[in-house]
Amino acid sequence: MSASSKSPWIVHYNCNSCNGCDIEFVACLTPMYDVERFGILHVGNPKHADILVVTGSVNHRDVRVLRNVYAQMPEPKVVVALGVCTSSGGIFADCYNIFGDVSKVIPVDVYVPACPPRPEAMIDGIVQALGILERKRAGEVMPSAAKPVLTLRPTAAAEAAPAAAQAAEQGNA
């Protein structure tokens, strides 16, 4: 492992979130969860950061700011999207001032679902991001994260196979 994935620095940008994810993310930094154990440091300047944590869906005014923050980060960089608003808009998907989910603006590597995710889930997401960061550093091109839809059908062995195929198809779409 290289130095940066042993001690990744994180910059956090709150796009449009209701503060739930935000505050839970800050709670990860505090004694009870203490992500600094992993060498993770929360920095204010995107130019120092390896991982961008985004919370909330993007509104029209945020688009420019988010692109700017992302562009200022040095390569390789990983984007972690916390909460359902970042991946689909969640309950706010139909609001008029929502531009869309984060992947419309910048490529996202890890989605952490739930509203808001528990700090444990956030730690999982960031640990997953570290692996992606390491592979990006080695020059690998990583695909954007998928959002598979779970589809269940009445229990019949014959129908199980097409269900799995459909789930994979929807995930790629």
Binding site: N59, H60, R61, V63, Y96, N97, F99
Partner: peptide, 11 residues
Amino acid sequence: FLLSEGSPVAP
């Protein structure tokens, strides 16, 4: 105030 370019007008 709340809206910006690209937002709907008087939503």
